[in-house]
Measured scan of single mutants.
Amino acid sequence: DEDELTGILKKLSLEKYQPIFEEQEVDMEAFLTLTDGDLKELGIKTDGSRQQILAAISELNAG
């Protein structure tokens, strides 16, 4: 699971946030449920980064 998540972050060039997800024990299943508020709480402060992550999440959820 973590590897898939790392792959997604790398694709977005946001792998610098990978340790945050690891630290908070966010797995792929949890990742797919994250909201903008969750990402802010995790410490992802950049709007653009959150938008990219949320776009990836909705794409993955759309299947």
Results as ranks from 00 to 15, higher is better:
Leu12Pro: 00
Leu32Trp: 03
Ile8Ser: 07
Asp3Ser: 14
Glu59Met: 09
Asp36Cys: 04
Lys16Ile: 05
Glu23Asp: 09
Thr46Ile: 13
Gln51Gly: 08
Ala30Cys: 13
Asp47Ile: 12
Ile53Pro: 04
Ala30Trp: 04
Phe31Asn: 04
Leu5Ser: 00
Gln24Pro: 00
Asp38Asn: 08
Tyr17Trp: 12
Asp3Tyr: 15
Asp36Trp: 01
Ile53Val: 11
Glu15Ile: 06
Glu15Tyr: 05
Ile57Tyr: 01
Pro19Ile: 03
Asp1Trp: 05
Gln52Asn: 08
Glu23Arg: 12
Lys45Cys: 08
Phe31Ile: 06
Glu4Ser: 09
Asp27Ile: 01
Met28Pro: 09
Arg50Cys: 05
Phe31Ser: 03
Asn61Val: 05
Thr33Arg: 14
Leu9Trp: 00
Lys10Ile: 01
Gln18Glu: 10
Ile20Val: 15
Glu2Gly: 09
Gln52His: 09
Met28Asp: 04
Glu41Cys: 10
Ala56Thr: 10
Leu34His: 05
Ile8Thr: 12
Leu32Ala: 11
Asp47Asn: 10
Ile8Lys: 09
Glu59Ile: 03
Leu60Arg: 10
Gly37Phe: 12
Ile8Gly: 03
Ser13Arg: 13
Thr35Phe: 01
Ile44Thr: 03
Ile20His: 08
Glu29Gln: 11
Leu32Pro: 08
Ile44Met: 07
Asp27Val: 00
Glu29Arg: 13
Ala55Glu: 14
Leu9Asp: 00
Gly63Thr: 11
Gln52Cys: 10
Leu60Asp: 05
Glu25Cys: 11
Leu34Cys: 04
Ala55Asn: 14
Gln51Cys: 05
Glu22Pro: 01
Glu59Arg: 11
Val26Glu: 03
Ala55Tyr: 10
Leu12Tyr: 15
Arg50Glu: 03
Ser49Met: 12
Ile8Phe: 10
Leu9Glu: 00
Asp1Val: 12
Glu41Trp: 03
Glu29Pro: 11
Glu29Met: 06
Glu25Gly: 13
Leu5Tyr: 03
Asn61Ser: 09
Leu14Glu: 01
Gln51Ser: 11
Ser13Pro: 01
Gly37Lys: 14
Glu23Lys: 11
Lys10Leu: 02
Glu2Asp: 10
Asp38Glu: 12
Lys16His: 14
Leu32Asn: 06
Glu2His: 15
Met28Lys: 13
Gly7Thr: 15
Glu2Ile: 15
Gln18His: 08
Leu39Val: 03
Gln24Thr: 07
Asp1Ala: 13
Phe21Pro: 02
Gln51Val: 07
Ile57Val: 08
Lys16Arg: 08
Ser49Val: 14
Glu4Asn: 00
Met28Cys: 06
Ile8Gln: 15
Gly7Leu: 15
Tyr17Gly: 05
Gln51Lys: 13
Gln24Met: 09
Val26Arg: 02
Gly43Thr: 01
Pro19Phe: 07
Leu34Arg: 03
Lys11Ala: 09
Glu41Asp: 12
Met28Val: 08
Val26Gln: 02
Asp38Lys: 09
Glu22Val: 07
Gly48His: 08
Ile53Glu: 06
Ser58Phe: 04
Gly63Lys: 09
Gly37His: 11
Ser49Thr: 12
Glu15Val: 05
Phe21Asp: 05
Gln24Asn: 14
Glu23Pro: 00
Leu32Lys: 15
Phe21Ser: 02
Thr33Phe: 02
Ile8Asn: 08
Leu9Val: 01
Gln24Trp: 04
Gly37Ser: 12
Leu60Met: 12
Glu29Ile: 05
Thr33Gly: 12
Ala30Val: 11
Gln52Gly: 07
Ser13Glu: 13
Gln51Asn: 12
Glu25Pro: 02
Leu60Ile: 11
Glu2Tyr: 14
Ile20Asn: 13
Leu12Ile: 15
Tyr17His: 03
Val26Leu: 09
Glu15Arg: 03
Lys40Arg: 12
Ser49Tyr: 07
Thr33Ile: 03
Lys45Tyr: 07
Ile53Lys: 02
Ile57Ala: 07
Glu4Cys: 13
Met28Leu: 09
Ile53Gly: 04
Glu4Arg: 02
Gly63Met: 06
Thr35Val: 01
Phe21Asn: 03
Val26Ser: 02
Ile53Ser: 04
Lys45Val: 08
Ala62Cys: 13
Thr6Glu: 00
Ala55Met: 08
Arg50Ile: 06
Leu32Ile: 09
Glu4Tyr: 03
Ser58Asn: 15
Glu4Met: 07
Glu23Ile: 06
Leu32Gly: 07
Thr46Leu: 10
Asp3Arg: 12
Ile20Pro: 02
Met28Ala: 12
Val26His: 01
Pro19Asn: 12
